[in-house]
């Protein structure tokens, strides 16, 4: 069952990323890769929230970790395109922009994951306090 959930989630995440790329016409390599950047930041935020929900046992079964975390969000975000785009910036003589892309993705990505986790933790605390 979780094999099917991972497959469906991963397929959906990859298709969503593909559709966004087609719709937003990704910038050609010498420019800042905004589409991948936004996808990865949104995904990092969502994974922070989902992983925290999982530790609170509020998401269970194959539609929890297998579908949402390993499948959908894992399949939506991409490390390989992030790296290849940075390499293409470097080979296009835009090493400075490549360093900015790498650093902002990592730093903003960690901050987004922390924000997603914090949001869920705060909601859980306010719900527990309200009872």
């Amino acid at each position: 069952m979780s094999v099917i959930a991972i497959f469906l989630g991963g397929g959906l995440g990859a298709t969503l990323r593909y559709a966004l790329g087609e719709a937003l016409a990704p910038p050609t390599p010498p420019n800042f890769p905004w589409v991948t950047f936004m996808i990865n930041i949104v995904g990092a935020f969502a994974l922070g929230a989902v992983m925290t929900l999982l530790t609170q046992h509020r998401l269970r079964g194959p539609w929890g970790k297998p579908f949402l975390s390993t499948g959908l969000i894992g399949g939506f975000t991409t490390w390989s395109h992030f790296i290849v785009e940075a390499d293409q910036l470097i080979s296009g003589d835009r090493t400075g922009l490549a360093i900015v892309y790498l650093a902002t993705s990592i730093v903003v990505g960690v901050a987004a994951a922390a924000a997603g986790a914090h949001l869920v933790e705060r909601r859980a605390r306010s719900q527990a306090g309200g009872r």
């Binding site: 995440g13 990865n40 399949g75 395109h81």
Partner: peptide, 16 residues
């Protein structure tokens, strides 16, 4: 690339 390798690698888990 976009399908298999994009889904195989993951940015969000790395950040987590």
């Amino acid at each position: 690339g976009v399908g298999f390798l994009g889904a195989y690698t993951t940015f969000s888990t790395e950040e987590w």
